[in-house]
Design a protein around this nucleic acid. Structure first.
Lengths: 207, 207
DNA sequence: GTCTATAGACGGATAGAC
DNA sequence: GTCTATCCGTCTATAGAC
């Protein structure tokens, strides 16, 4: 994760308080939901008070932004990279592979975004919302299919992204409190999962 | 959009406050999120007061249950039906087709469930089962793949369900306020969408 | 950097009149 | 069936001491 070294020296020596806040907040936001998790709850779990939180973050939403901006930065970089390449099966395959890597690496952040879509979409703050997945999805599809693709091809590309995202999240070994046993008696390793998911996404994109 | 205000002449405009509450609540819950939508907001949009809502529903959660129980009933029926059939490609295909139909028919409800996962998961009522998507997913996968399938086959079946669900929701013509134009310049009809999605799901399941 | 204390707002829910 | 009025809890955020 990003260690948030955006602060002056005096504030973050070895300062893991900020990082611990992020960690606990992300965990609770993803598990119980953004609105159902109060700052009091986060503070209590860390053994500090609410006011301490406000020393490190200017608001509740600011905590969210602190761990989502890194994720969105990666996606944007992926899109930019894709635009520089010539469309084709090889490019699409590489894009998908990189996308899978991003999703798997930022597992908890992705889980948070997935499970709090309505909340995130609802933040109409105007200023800076920690924001939208929608325009990025459009760009990803365009970059995978190339311009002027048919509805069928576009939908399949979208489905590939959806399938990849949700599968990586759901079948991940380090999913917290998953009733995974019921659906997958034997868990695949991270590499096995990556391979299976990439194969399935490729099937969707290449036809 | 504002279907609660102006309805077609043959629709039962008068005397069905309960249905109008459901409709408006579902719309707002799906769009802005369950917690970010207050009963006051729902009441205001209907031109009534909060207290009136409590005549028709015993709590906020009760409104949710009123429009989710039908959806889950259908899924459960689908699972039960699947269990009675012998596993095989034909069965899987039929199951997928029926699942797609369910998702497409209950579009707004599904959107609500999708976009409020964290909230829904957070309500540990225990007594009300509308919380659990997880065990149903496990059952669906089992019924599609048959018993004792490999991790790869199970993950592909899961991915098929994920892809179908999200695609039907996202690429649906009557998606409210979707920036769909950006990703799909020409929109498929409901039948075309169904066909495309079924084909893609089949590709995932049969290999 | 962390604390205590509190402001200020808004939420869900209920009582009882009509 | 719908209203007015209100209770009580919780929340985010801030002020200011140490």
């Amino acid at each position: 994760m990003d260690a948030a070294q955006e602060q002056p020296e005096h504030a973050t020596r070895r300062g893991d308080t900020r990082a611990r806040i992020q960690q606990v907040a992300l965990e609770l936001f993803a598990e119980h939901g953004y609105e159902r998790t109060s700052l009091r709850e986060i503070a209590e779990r860390l053994g500090v008070t609410k006011a301490a939180l406000y020393y490190h973050f200017k608001s509740k939403e600011d905590i969210v932004r602190s761990f989502t901006e890194d994720y969105f930065g990666r996606i944007d970089a992926l899109i930019a990279r894709g635009k520089e390449q010539s469309p084709g099966t090889a490019t699409a395959q590489e894009l998908l592979a990189r996308y899978i890597a991003i999703v798997m690496e930022s597992g908890e952040v992705f889980r948070f975004l997935e499970r709090n879509q309505a909340t995130i979409h609802g933040t109409e703050d105007g200023k800076h919302r920690f924001t939208q997945f929608r325009p990025r999805l459009a760009a990803l599809i365009e970059v995978i299919t190339g311009p002027g693709a048919s509805p069928r091809v576009r939908i399949r590309a979208g489905a590939a992204i959806f399938a990849v995202s949700t599968s990586c999240m759901f079948f991940s070994k380090d999913a917290p409190e998953a009733d995974l046993d019921a659906v997958l008696p034997v868990l695949p390793s991270k590499d096995e999962l990556r391979e299976i998911v990439l194969e399935l996404a490729t099937d969707l994109v290449k036809n």
